[in-house]
Design a protein around this nucleic acid. Structure first.
Lengths: 135, 135, 135, 135
DNA sequence: GTGGTCTAGACCACG
DNA sequence: GTGGTCTAGACCACC
């Protein structure tokens, strides 16, 4: 499992884990039925308290994105496409809405905003490609 | 002063106040020299402890967005444009970056994102126009 | 009476008044028996609340540097030289002690510190000269 | 951590804490990465409310002198030298400026001031040497 | 276990 | 009248 933690970013660690795992599940980077890395193993790898990982997994279970099989571990759950799709778009929509609100307030033109947006997209896409090649 | 607080949002109240006041100052919705609502008055209105408001105002003073006139109150400070500008763009940039990260992760095409973004901008611009006409 | 107030300096206004009047009395710039500017007049001139001036004068009276003559006003008191002298040196000594403590802590060499000190002295001396010529 | 509080000095307690910790960090008396005394522990020792200590630590974090590691505690941050240096010199400069203003006002000659300054520096340097040997 | 936030209410400093 | 500080104690978030 590819997870990057920045303990100094201000975002709680368990949230960083949640977001990255959720993203990987929703985009299919993690397949249905695939087992999540064990709590202790991931915690050791990230140099993080096991309770932190456990908490993140707990939230993902609540969301229905993973399923617990007692004594064995957690697995990526099957989520119906008509449930998955809106989850994905809602997240993006909210972020775009926030950006729009700020840009309008700050008098940033749509063109300038869009140039920035595209720049960041390129960065993230190439970063993603690199990660995939490493696997 | 227009301030909306959601005590259940998880974001500390004083931070919500800071962000909203900062945005209003940077966007010029609050004019230079304008007096901020009094600590006790705002606290009463938001049904919040005066210290919470005071804390928020204190941070804004540290940022230099607000100036104290002892015994009188707090006022919107004059901020040099070359200081203000980067503060504004940084806020917009961060929001766009977040949106880009999500869109890439969720496989949302640039075209779809752009359509959404434009829609929200139109909404905010018309909302803004209405607010101005009311004044 | 020559008094410069900086309402934005962070130092309480009444303290700024106290310090400047005290300095002028101790250095003889204000003669024994000379009348202090009236509270209302000084307050108007400095664009400051009369109570602020009154408070400053009150402290000076407590220190014995000025004397109240009921119904007439406040006058520079006669202070014995053997009382005056230590007041003056103690003030300077304390400031130098603080500067020394910091300079040692911050590893600033005596030479560097002294160059700075002399620079500031020159500035203040010329400022003082200008003030005198204006009178 | 060596901290002396004078609750009767007029200077707010949280400011006294800030200044003393800042000085110890900038002078290297507190090493980079060293853990700050825990909020509750320091509060108990100074017989002060934990929030007061927390407030002080919070400001130091804003200044970038201190970093939080959530759930663990606060640590002396690594501050780039080119950022640290001006902070240090500004502190010394201000103290020297204040001393110069007083000395000029009180008609203390540069020679007398210099003698005093050197004396205090000697005192602080030997005190410092003693402290180092104790370690 | 750590630190952060909020409250209620007292008291102070400043004008 | 302003705002600032501090306390005591409750509660929360995070690890």
């Amino acid at each position: 499992m590819i997870i990057d933690i920045d303990p100094r970013s201000g975002v709680p660690i368990y949230r960083q884990i949640i977001e990255q795992v959720r993203r990987q599940i929703l985009t299919g980077q993690m397949a249905v039925g695939e087992q999540l890395e064990q709590v202790r193993s991931l915690a050791a790898r990230l140099k993080v308290n096991p309770m932190t990982v456990s908490k993140a997994y707990g939230y993902l279970e609540l969301e229905g994105l993973v399923e617990r099989q007692r004594g064995i571990g957690l697995f990526v759950a099957h989520v119906r496409k008509d449930v998955k799709k809106p989850m994905k778009t809602r997240m993006v929509e909210q972020a775009l809405k926030e950006a729009a609100a700020l840009a309008v307030g700050m008098d940033v033109s749509d063109e300038d905003a869009w140039k920035l947006y595209e720049k960041y997209c390129r960065q993230y896409r190439s970063k993603r490609r690199r990660n995939r090649e490493e696997r």
